[in-house]
Design a protein around this nucleic acid. Structure first.
Length: 259
DNA sequence: ATGGCCGAGGTACTCGGA
């Protein structure tokens, strides 16, 4: 089974590339972030024609997540149970379902904006609720994984120049400790291989030629429990999808499982 | 080739992204 995660930065803007990519890769399950669409705008029909069922948690121009599956989509939960509000709103940042042999979450963790900003406090609270919500499945015998845009670079090796990020979000000890807590709950960082260069970055800013210069970050992560991690036969970042006109600023992370 | 931001809402420009 092939499972992947991709922050598409608007499913409407990305639809032609998304459909072509799904067909060319034969992906069975895709976790999508930043759909940036309302529930009504979601392209169910186009995806159904390619054989995908969809579970969607989306409410407009910001955020929004989805799960696509060709191998079944059962017991869908929209949202993060026990998750915090931001400015009084439960934002659409999580959706989970059982896809064939695996239980899967698609998550779009809050950005945080600036260290100690209210959004940063929200980000840490969101991680805390996520860890509590997944603890049971993480310790279970069924293959289980949380995939998505975690908005944290796990180590200094996961940013193109650590000096540039000093004092900024995505690299702080508190954010990295949140990832450590997830690992302590039983999830392992399934690190993909890069298709070029030495580091498996998944995000490159649109500005200042960041992609051609490989000024990237690894912030799109696959956190799987032991049965999931044991089944991984390959994992890679599809940087080809970051090329050219009409690309997202994130590349897909693809994981092949023997299940 | 991979090239100096992009997308949504709404129709000027602001917000969010990391």
């Amino acid at each position: 089974m092939r499972i992947a995660t991709w922050n598409v930065n608007s499913i409407t803007a990305r639809l032609p590339r998304l459909l072509a990519w799904l067909e060319s890769t034969g992906t069975d399950v895709l976790c999508i972030q930043e759909t940036k669409c309302s529930a009504e705008q979601f392209p169910y029909d186009e995806l159904r024609e390619l054989g995908y069922e969809a579970a969607v948690n989306a409410s407009g121009r910001w955020n929004g997540v989805a799960l696509l599956s060709k191998v079944g989509l059962e017991d869908v939960v929209a949202g993060l149970p026990g998750g915090p509000d931001y400015e009084g709103v439960q934002e659409p940042r999580a959706v989970s379902a059982t896809c064939g042999p695996a239980r899967v979450w698609s998550v779009y963790v809050p950005n945080g904006r600036e260290v100690d900003h209210a959004h940063y406090v929200y980000k840490l609270g969101w991680f805390e609720a996520l860890t509590a919500a997944v603890a049971g499945d993480a310790a279970g015998a069924r293959p289980f994984a949380v995939l998505g845009d975690f908005n944290v670079a796990p180590t200094d090796e996961d940013v193109w120049d650590p000096a540039v990020f000093v004092g900024q979000t995505h690299v702080t000890p508190a954010e990295r400790a949140a990832l450590t807590s997830l690992r302590e709950a039983g999830l392992a960082d399934v690190v993909p291989r890069p298709l070029k260069y030495d580091r498996p970055y998944t995000y490159w800013d649109y500005r200042q030629l960041a992609f051609p210069k490989n000024k990237g970050m690894r912030i799109d992560l696959v956190y799987g429990n032991a049965p999931f991690a044991k089944a991984v036969s390959d994992a890679y970042v599809d940087r080809e999808e970051r090329k050219g006109k009409g690309a997202s600023d994130h590349a897909p992370v693809v994981v092949d499982l023997d299940v």
